[in-house]
Structure formats: C-alpha cells, structure tokens
Design a protein around this nucleic acid. Structure first.
Lengths: 322, 322
DNA sequence: TTGTACGCGTTATCAT
DNA sequence: ATGATAACGCGTACAA
C-alpha cells in the first residue's frame, strides 16, 4: 500500500533519500537514516519488487525445471537454492511431469523477463527448442548435452565406473559382473566403454560373464544374489548400477549365508545414505558441487564474472564390501 | 530488447494502438492490426512482464508451499496448476524441506507483490506467522485449521471413514478391526470418533478387537495379515488407514491362503492406483476438487467474485474385497 | 478508430 | 548530505 513517496513525505525527506536508506547507500547522515527507518518500520514498508525489477532489468529469480522430484533431484535443488540465496537470488520450481507446455511456460517467463535464468535439470522439449531460448537468458542443464549455448554440469560416469573397477582389480578380484542401470542410457554406454577399456588394460576377457541391463532396484539386487548362488563358475565381484541395487544384492547374499567380501565383493554407486548404513563400498558423486557449479555458471553469465568452477570428481568410498 | 514504442514507431502507429493489438482490445481496424502484428512477429516482441505487473498491480503468479513432494501432493499441485493456467495464472513451487526460512521467502514474495496469492499446502511456521501475511494477499491451505483469514480445503475424514464402516455393516460384517494411520493426527482422531458413533448406532462393542495405530505401509499391512492368522477369535473385516496398507494386507493374506472377502474383508482409503490395480474396495477422496476449490477461493478473493465451491464428498468405491 | 499523456514504484544521475 | 527528475515498459483515461 504504502510507497516510497509516502515514506519520504512522512519522514520529511525526498524519495531519493529513502531509497538510499533502503539500499544501505553511503552519504546519508545518521539522524536522517534513523528518522526514515522509523517511518519504514512504522508503516511496515517494503519496496515493491515489480518496480525494482522493472528498473533494474532483473528479477533475481531463477527457475529450475525438472520432470519430477526424487531424492537426487531434491539434493540438487536444495544445494542450488542454498548457493543462490547466499547471493540474493530466489528460486522457482517447475515440475513438468513430462508435459512440454509446463516447460514452455518456464521458458516464456525467461523470455518475458520474469526470470533471470533457468536450470533445466531434465528437459522435456527438444534441445533445439530450449536452445532457442538461450537468447533471453542463461540456461544450464544437468543432463549430458553438447550445445555451446547450454552449458552442462553433467558428469561422465566413465571415470567413476573405472574407479570402481580399478579398485576391485587392486583388491585382487578378477571376475567381475557388471549390473548396468538402464538399457540404452548414456551412463550405461559410458560404463560399458569403461569396462572394455579396463579389460583391455589388464588383458581380461570382457565377456567371461553375463552383463545385466536395466536393473537398479533393491528387488533386482536380491534376484542377482540368487543368480550368483546358482552359478557353477562363480564370479568374485559385482559392480552395481546403484547403491540401492547393491544393497539388495548384499543383504540377500548375506541372508543366503554368503560371506561378503570374502566370497564375493560388491561395489555400489552414488554414495547414498543406504550405502553408509550398510557399510557398502561405493562411488561418490558430488551433486552439491554440480549444483554450485550450475549456479556459478549462471552468475558468471548474469554478472559478467569469471569465477572458477569446482572440479567435479568421482571418489571411491572404500568401506566393508570389497 | 525491443519495447512497445519501438514496435509503434516501426508500424507507424502509437504505442496505445500496439497495446490494443497485444491485448486484443476492440476498436482497432483490421489493416492496422495486421501491420502491427507483422512488426511484432518480425521483432519477436513480447511485453515485459515486470512492467505489466507493475502497471496492473498483480503478477498473475501464485505460489504453492509444500514441505515435500510426494504422490498426493503432486496430484494437488498438478490439479491446481491446471485450473490456474486456464485462468491465466502461473505457479511457482516452494519445497521447504521443513525449513522455516524457505517458507518465509514465499511469504515475503507475497508481501513484496511478486506473488498474488499463496497456497500453503503443508506449513512449517506457526499459523500465527502465516496469518500475519494474509494482509498482503489471499492464503489458503490444505491442512485443517480454523482461522478465518486462512480458508482451508481440508476434508474431515469422519464422513469418509463412516462410509467405509457403514458399507461393511451393510455387507454383514460385524467384527471390524481399525488400522489407524498416525498416532495422534487429526485424521485418526476423527476416524476414532466415527468408529465410536458407528458402534453406538448399531450397538456394537467398540473394544471387541485391538485398534492399531501409526501404521500405513505395505509392510505393516503384511504383518497385520499374519496377526490375523494367529487370532483364535478372528475379526471379519479391516478398515485400513491407506490403500497402501490395505494392499499389503490383502496380498499377504492371499499368499497365506486366506480368501478375501469371504473369510475377511478389506477396505482401503484414498482410491490410489494400487487400489484400482488390486480391485480393492476403498474410499475416494477428491484431491483435484480440493485443488480446484483452493483456486476458486483465491480467484474469488483476488477478483471479487463469488464463484461457488464444489462440494467435497468422500465416495465409496466398491470393488472386490468386501 | 487512433493518439496523447500520465501513472505504476523504483533507482540512479545530476545538481545543489 | 540531500533533492529534483528522468528513466524502466506498459496500460488506459481522455481527447480527438
């Protein structure tokens, strides 16, 4: 209701002075500052953000687009939000449920200056559509994509998977079974590539054992445990798609009386809570650093800075299952 | 980049005319409309939303606050979004993770006119704090609360539960076991009240069987099935806290060779997908109507309308488990 | 049917 | 240290 002029009038100063007080500008005497502040407090005044945004040409609002909202996505969102808020930005979340229109609304809000930037975690529309909107503001993504206009904080799982394999090798395991997460996803592709390079390096037969595809649930892990029990020629290690699957595999194996890691080793992926709980060796994946990098990229673009990105590294978390 | 004046100049008209074209106002001749539209298309022009918001005094943006994001919350959000968008409103989502500051940011955005209204699905701050913000714009909630300034679309589960009980009675079941969802929640309280009234009405002994509290998972349902098997004096029906629990109970009972509904009946609650899948009798709960009512309330407040709310009714969905 | 001119609430430049 | 005043980009009485 109350605007800056009203405050100015009541405090007996000009609106310019009030603005200075609000924004902590220098060159305003202590007595006037106090007088103005009193009136502000009394009238419960806050500047109208629409006016500020119009004047400044930015809203300090960043949109995050995601197709859904699960644990890892939530982790990213939470991390991003924290960094953004430290720098005075607010976040608005768009859960698309896979609907293109919902995503387009976010993109349109960028075009129409209601958003300063966009994080497109998991897209719905074609990349070409999204790329078109980069002219209106920075857009970064979490997915793997090689488009110059859309920087990504995607981490190539080749390195992470290799880390797991090398660790198993160093521990003396030689017959490793791979359980891949999705049938044809990019992560699986990179993991397969890592495994082949690994076998070549140590002169192992890459096809000595079955490769499992499309598995990542606890139940799937349990089934794999049974599969292992039935093999006459038993592999001595599992490199799993996720901690979840590894957890199912581990607990079911123990239920069947199999000793881990002496009879068989298990490596997970993601370093989630469950891996911590079960003391599962796994690969750590710095989601919060990815989120921070996403924000740094946006801030660099928005404010013409050149802040360095954090190096994104997979890390082996060695625990009790290898 | 381009603003309304640039369009006006290039089209050889005044900015007022351009504005009329944009907003589909009458009294603009077809030839000029076309000329203006051409220039708009050519320059890829869209009005700056900050300017529009400032001028109109509203942003057409509604915030939704939620502590997390699960299936039912998602259903509500999706429904609300749909209705809102049909009326030209966009949604911005705040997942608080239980942090008060995140909620306060949403409330502050309302105060500072960046949001027209707020749906506080599940609050974190004290109601008194939230109530204070109702002076800046309409706030409605999904939770049960009796504060005049904060209308609610909460549904009292007394009726719904009674529906389930009456149905069991009509089907001839007389010894009913209640499995309540939370220890001391309001829903449980209302359900207990319903059960007592029910027993009184039909002269049944309300304490003939154990009452279970704090259970709502599939696993809990499975355990209840085993409990039933061990009872010498078996009850003939279960009124469950959720479809989830009912599903666990139902499937485990059948696994144990118990025939449902001839030996024992099961009623769920929520009418979720799983109840549909398992052909489970349950109580339907119109989340989408609640969402629509929330939007209607907000729109009524915002635009001074008096649109009627939809009646919110529980419905018995009679399927194969009773 | 079209144009002029003012106001929405700020911030920032330039005087003073 | 403070005050006028011009933008920011748009919508809309009012006039023509």
């Amino acid at each position: 209701m109350a605007n800056i002029h009203e405050i100015a009038k009541l405090a007996g100063v000009s609106s310019a002075t009030v603005s200075r007080v609000i924004n902590n500008h220098p060159y305003v005497s202590e007595p006037t500052r106090q007088r103005v502040q009193e009136v502000i407090d009394q009238l419960d005044y806050v500047p109208n953000l629409n006016a500020v945004s119009l004047k400044k040409g930015m809203t300090k609002l960043i949109g995050i687009i995601s197709i859904s909202f699960n644990d890892s996505l939530g982790l990213f969102v939470r991390g991003f939000t924290t960094y953004a808020q430290e720098h005075g930005f607010n976040i608005t979340l768009f859960i698309t449920n896979g609907e293109k229109e919902r995503e387009l609304e976010a993109l349109e809000m960028l075009r129409r200056k209601q958003l300063d930037a966009l994080v497109c975690m998991i897209r719905v529309n074609e990349w070409s559509v999204i790329e078109h909107y980069t002219q209106y503001g920075p857009i970064v993504t979490w997915q793997r994509v090689k488009i110059e206009a859309i920087p990504s904080v995607f981490m190539d799982q080749y390195q992470g998977y290799m880390l797991a394999l090398e660790h198993l090798y160093a521990r003396g395991y030689r017959s490793i079974v791979n359980v891949y997460g999705s049938m044809r996803g990019l992560n699986t592709k990179e993991r397969i590539r890592a495994y082949h390079d690994f076998c070549q390096k140590y002169d192992l037969n890459a096809d000595a054992f079955t490769h499992f595809y499309g598995l990542n649930s606890i139940e799937a892990g349990e089934q794999i445990a049974h599969w292992w029990g039935e093999q006459p020629n038993k592999p001595d290690a599992f490199a799993c798609s996720t901690d979840c699957l590894a957890a199912g595999l581990l607990t079911e194996a123990r239920r069947l009386g199999v000793s881990v890691p002496s009879e068989v080793a298990v490596v997970g992926f993601d370093n989630t809570e469950i891996s911590h709980l079960l003391d599962l060796t796994t690969i750590h994946y710095p989601i919060d650093k990815q989120a921070e990098n996403a924000f740094i990229m946006i801030r660099n673009a928005l404010e013409g800075l050149h802040e360095e990105l954090h190096p994104l590294e997979f890390k082996l978390v060695e625990r009790a299952t290898t």
